[in-house]
């Protein structure tokens, strides 16, 4: 009995010591957080980095490292780019290179950097009525159109929607008819709609994996080079828009390209999905 209580006392003392040490360490480790002049930083970003939870990890990291307060505004890439091109945001993360290019060329965006990539996949009902499994992306689109199988389009000028339209063009098809549904919504609601309508759709792999448990859709086409999904990070040009927080935007781009951040991106989702959701690209390009 006495021995037991002694043990307990010892344990309690040890625990308290541990806690105290932990606190002391924390205090010693926490440096004065930097405090920039203009703290507010508006990030205009594609939705899928939010829907997968990636930004919930990265933004707090950035904020504690730099002292900026990020206001992330999530929309489809088309709208995210439009907000940036009006000077209504400071920094952007989008995945529609063809839509980003004009604004990079005309100087709306600067410091345009390759961030990461993953892939698009074509998903559809498990019984695959149009028999597209294992085909190339354009061949699968041709078969879906020929079979007049239900296809749900984002229809919102997002990165995925732009990619989808490019694939239809490559397949030489102008999709129309009662089989082609225009959802006009984000990726997650579009996937849910496709699942309810037993239709096909084009999706980024990460959103599909995040929603998978709610869907009756299988991955039918993947691995095609045409299905690479590329994300860039860029600053809105302060020379064109004086209200832009240029220092904050620069700090954000630097943070995203930092090898530590890139490692967090590369490891993100591995524990939950057994595979990475994103492939970090800035490390390879040697920045």
């Amino acid at each position: 009995m006495k021995k037991n209580s002694l043990w307990l006392c010892g344990l309690v003392v040890l625990l308290l010591l541990g806690l105290a040490a932990g606190c002391a360490k924390k205090q010693a480790q926490a440096p004065q957080p930097p405090s920039p002049a203009n703290k507010n930083l508006i990030l205009s970003s594609t939705t899928d980095v939010q829907d997968t939870g990636l930004m919930d990890v990265l933004i707090p990291m950035f904020q504690t490292q730099t002292g900026y307060v990020v206001k992330p505004i999530y929309n489809g890439s088309g709208q995210a780019i439009a907000l940036g091109a009006k000077g209504e945001a400071d920094v952007l993360i989008t995945h529609a290179p063809s839509a980003e290019k004009p604004d990079v060329d005309n100087g709306d965006f600067i410091n345009y950097q390759l961030l990461m990539h993953n892939s698009y996949v074509v998903v559809g009902p498990p019984d695959d009525p149009a028999k597209i499994k294992g085909l190339s992306a354009t061949d699968s689109f041709k078969k879906i159109a020929a079979a007049k199988a239900v296809f749900v389009s984002r229809g919102d000028n997002s990165g995925t929607n732009i990619e989808e339209k490019a694939l239809w063009k490559q397949a030489g098809i102008t999709p129309s008819g009662s089989w082609y549904l225009n959802a006009g919504q984000g990726m997650a609601p579009t996937l849910l709609l496709a699942s309810q309508k037993t239709g096909y759709t084009l999706t980024d792999l990460s959103t599909y994996l995040a929603q998978q448990k709610n869907l009756q859709l299988d991955i039918l086409v993947q691995g095609d080079k045409a299905l690479t999904n590329i994300y860039h990070v860029m600053q809105v040009n302060p020379a064109k828009f004086s209200k832009v927080n240029a220092d904050g935007a620069k700090a954000f781009v630097d943070f995203m390209l930092n090898p530590n951040t890139q490692k967090v991106i590369a490891d993100f989702g591995k524990d939950k999905y057994g595979q990475p959701l994103y492939y970090a690209d800035a490390v390879k390009s040697g920045s």
Partner: peptide, 16 residues
């Protein structure tokens, strides 16, 4: 800052 119940519900649906 501006996350309220209705917008959180919308977001959680999007996140599955």
């Amino acid at each position: 800052l501006t996350r309220v119940l209705t917008t959180t519900i919308d977001q959680e649906v999007s996140m599955g």
